[in-house]
Design a protein around this nucleic acid. Structure first.
Lengths: 161, 161
DNA sequence: AGTGAATAGTCAGCCTGCTGAGCAAATCAT
DNA sequence: ATGATTTGCTCAGCAGGCTGACTATTCACT
């Protein structure tokens, strides 16, 4: 019975119990599971987004930008990425016409980032995607809570005040 | 060009209003939280690993390799990455002296990958790190269960048999 | 003032994901 | 047996993380 198939069955719905059903991954350290799950979920996002000329990173930036123009370092901090990374993400969004960058006249080191109408439109158009993209879980709120705990711990480690 | 900046509505509405403790992230979609948490946890791993000349990806490969030599495609499948990605990860591990690749005489398309003594040693030396690196949570098993559900769903989507 | 430190962004370069292409070996079909 | 397909792996090139190094401003302090 154990022989051939490494994984249980073609999966149409997801509510199986039993860790044994999950194959050898059930013994992976949690950090491994976390990275792997994140990557797989991102694939689903990318599939849904790339016809819109957006990436997951770009979507996060548009989300954080919201209605209120801000500068890049602020966006980077809120996204928990380095500002070099945010800078390049914004390059691409700008190239796609989803935002504008202009120097802040009050502090000429800063770039003020503003969503264009196209940027707001594409962001709105993704609002409904979450439910298509993210699998149904038995305890979604428990997951969210655990992730927030992890982010809090990781942020404290990395951006120690 | 602003074309009457009409912005539909405030963005903040996802069923749960609680979680005020965690700041604005409490309203992020779960996929965003997942990627962010994964990245932050990986930083912690990297800090612990790079003095050993290992990366997180390399560690996963050594883990999956175990005592039993296999070929690259098998490793890639078990890690849920493309084989091009695994190929490069193995390049680096080979360069560091943690594994060997030799052609399989029975099927000369394949490369048989074997952990060296150094590879086994470094892998053993990381076994104790998990607890240092991964933050304590209120419900670690709940998290693991949710991640396994996600991986199962994502795998079914992507590597549908 | 003027010097020196801190801040905002960029550039370069590395790693790890991905896709698309391409080669060589093995397997399948005719 | 030959040709076509599949399989295993690599190369090239992009995105998105990171670090380190550099410029240009601004701030802070004597």
């Amino acid at each position: 019975m154990t022989g051939a198939g490494r994984y249980p069955e073609p999966v149409e719905e997801i509510q199986e119990p039993a860790e044994a059903e999950h194959g050898p991954m059930a013994e992976w350290p949690t950090g491994r599971l976390l990275s792997t799950a994140a990557r797989l979920v991102e694939h689903a996002w990318l599939d849904a987004l790339d016809e819109r000329g957006l990436s997951h990173a770009g979507l996060i930036a548009l989300h954080l930008l919201g209605e209120e123009p801000t500068n890049q370092t602020d966006l980077a901090e809120r996204a928990r990425v380095e500002n070099q990374t945010m800078s390049r993400t914004l390059d691409r969004l700008e190239r796609e016409g989803y935002l504008l960058r202009e120097r802040d006249p009050r502090d000429r080191r800063r770039h003020i980032v503003t969503r264009t109408a196209a940027g707001s439109a594409v962001w709105e158009s993704t609002r409904s995607l979450e439910s298509d993209v993210f699998p149904a879980l038995t305890d979604p709120d428990g997951l969210r809570h655990a992730l927030l705990e992890l982010i809090k711990a990781g942020t404290a480690r990395r951006w120690r005040p």
